[in-house]
Simulated scan of single mutants.
Amino acid sequence: MQQGAATSIYCAVSPELEGLGGMYFNNCCRCLPSQQAQREETAAALWELSEKLIQERVGSQSK
């Protein structure tokens, strides 16, 4: 379990990353995302899906 959280902990507390964001890390190393992950179409589709799922969740809680 410790190893599974290592990258998240590193990114959260690392002084050299303070004030930075929007980067992809794997095994505590900065990596380039896959070509698919860098596509604008993929980003737009993910954003749309995220909005839909959040709205479904928020809408179901207000009833």
Rank of each mutant, 00 (worst) to 15 (best):
M23W: 14
S8F: 04
C29M: 01
I9T: 05
K63S: 15
E41G: 02
E41F: 04
Q55N: 09
S14H: 06
Y10P: 00
L20Q: 03
Q61C: 15
S14Q: 13
L49I: 12
L32I: 12
S62N: 11
A37R: 03
P15Q: 11
R57W: 04
I54S: 09
A45Q: 06
Q2D: 13
C29I: 12
A43P: 03
Y10M: 03
V13F: 06
R30V: 07
E51H: 06
Q36N: 12
R39K: 14
K63D: 12
W47E: 10
Q3Y: 11
S50N: 11
L17I: 04
R30W: 13
A12I: 00
A5C: 04
Y24R: 12
F25V: 07
E41T: 04
C28A: 14
V13L: 10
W47V: 14
T7M: 00
E40I: 03
K52R: 15
A5M: 14
E41N: 11
G4I: 05
Y10Q: 03
Q38Y: 01
G21P: 03
P15V: 07
S50A: 15
Q36S: 10
E56I: 07
K63C: 14
C31Y: 08
Q38E: 04
L32T: 12
N26K: 10
Y10N: 00
C11D: 03
E56T: 09
A5T: 09
M23S: 11
Q38I: 02
R57N: 07
L32G: 08
I54E: 05
M23F: 12
F25Q: 02
Y24P: 00
E16Y: 02
L32C: 05
R39S: 08
Q36V: 03
L46F: 08
L20P: 01
I54H: 08
S60E: 10
L53N: 05
Q61F: 15
A44Y: 07
I54M: 15
S8M: 09
Q36W: 15
Q55A: 10
G21F: 01
N26Y: 11
L46W: 01
E56D: 11
L20H: 07
S14C: 12
R57S: 06
